[in-house]
Amino acid sequence: MKPTLKPLDQQTLVITGASSGIGLATAQEAARRGARVVLASRNEAALKDIVTQIEAAGGQALAVAADVGKRADMERVAAAAIERFGGFDTWVNNAGIGIWGWSDQISDEDARRLFDTNYWGVVNGSLVAAQHLKRAGGAIINIGSVESDRAMPLHSAYSASKHAVKAFTDSLRMELEHDGAPIVVTLVKPGAIGTPFTEHARNYTGREAKLPPPVYSPQDVALAILDAACKPHRDMFVGSSAKTMSSLGQRAPRMFDRVSEKFMFDAQLAEQPPAHPMGSLHESTLAGRVEGHHPHTRVRRSLSNQARLHPGRAASIVLAAGAAVAALAVRWRYSGWAGMRRA
């Protein structure tokens, strides 16, 4: 059966990891566009506040405190969505956590907790969602990463979990398509996104974690997710740097190794000690914010993402980007010439 995806304002979306970052941005935007949203997270207090805000703005939302690493909790989320809204049309497996550290520093307990969330959370959510969507159809959207394609130093556990998410998602898609299930399975692979991810991560390094530029807005990922809820996509990169890194990692892996070894350690570590070295790995904290604290880089919108989602605006976006590059070139030329004259 060919999958048919409804317009967003006719959908109910289940979103895990909805108390902050990408999940919260997606829930807010979906509710603003008329969708009903079911928000799942370990942080019940934060979820209730978010639901209150969405309902105050005229939206419909339901909070369900749950741990994605437990299949029974995901079944409880699905049951709550069915009881409140009669079912769901899209399930977004977004919950995720990071660890910054050398591979031999990371404890087995922390690595397993990360996999419970990043990998088993996707497996549990996907299988529960598929069980219900096989009847009425819909979308399963899994949030991977550019690190689903290309591992990064200091991220061994995180990169491994995102590789596993990609493999599971690809296998699940083939199985559902073979069986004729009316379900679209999409993997979203963002680059560096300006959420509270670095603050939530478990940090072994003794230095504050930071994201290497370019860093994109969480809203870009939310818009990609909502596009996948309405239109079939197999894979979606968010941020041109993500696609570039994936391509280079596949075509020139040793060169990418060398570049990463030279630049990606200092690019991911600030000089000051981490404010929250334990992060939210074992206990949900710092929830309720879409954007994180990124003093070392500017968070910007992805032009490639806007061009893909709005093809009619692509020409104007390209022109704007060209104008920006030209302006920078003029400024550099002037400042360079002025510097030469001063010298």
Rank of each mutant, 00 (worst) to 15 (best):
G239S: 09
K6A: 08
A201I: 02
A27S: 14
V299Q: 05
V238F: 07
V146Q: 01
E75L: 13
W91E: 02
S126K: 00
I317D: 07
L226T: 04
Q11F: 03
V238I: 13
S145F: 02
K70A: 08
L62G: 00
P311W: 13
G191D: 03
Q105C: 12
A129M: 12
G101S: 08
P213G: 10
S240N: 12
A151I: 00
P218V: 04
L127W: 12
A111E: 08
A111S: 15
M245I: 14
M278P: 00
I99K: 01
T12S: 11
G206W: 09
Q11R: 11
I99Y: 03
A315M: 09
T169C: 06
H294L: 15
S247K: 09
H163Y: 15
P274M: 08
R71L: 13
T186I: 07
A201T: 01
G194K: 00
W100P: 00
A80N: 09
V325E: 15
A40R: 00
S41Q: 04
Y119D: 03
V188T: 03
A181W: 02
A130W: 02
R234K: 14
A95V: 05
M264E: 00
G322L: 15
S304M: 10
T186W: 04
S103Q: 13
V330W: 13
L127G: 01
Q250A: 13
A201Q: 03
N118F: 02
A324W: 13
N142W: 02
S20A: 15
G21I: 04
W332G: 12
W337T: 14
R298M: 14
T4R: 14
G180N: 06
V38T: 08
A242F: 01
A329M: 15
T205N: 03
E208N: 06
A307Q: 11
D110S: 09
G17K: 02
R331M: 15
A95C: 13
L248N: 00
R150P: 00
N305H: 07
A56K: 14
S171K: 07
A224K: 01
P273L: 10
A329F: 11
P3F: 06
F265L: 12
L133C: 06
F115T: 09
T205M: 12
P232D: 08
L319R: 14
R76T: 10
H296D: 15
V77W: 01
F88V: 04
G17R: 03
H200R: 10
V318R: 14
W337E: 14
L303H: 10
P232H: 07
Y216D: 03
G98V: 02
E83L: 10
G17E: 09
V37F: 11
K243R: 15
V77I: 11
E199C: 04
T169K: 03
I99C: 07
S335Y: 09
L24N: 01
A81V: 05
F115R: 04
A167Y: 11
P253H: 11
D110V: 07
S240T: 10
R112C: 05
R234L: 14
R207A: 11
G96P: 02
R342H: 12
F256Q: 05
N118W: 00
G279N: 07
W120M: 12
L24E: 06
E83S: 11
G34Q: 11
D110A: 12
K134C: 13
E55D: 08
G292N: 05
A287N: 04
A81S: 08
L5G: 02
L114T: 02
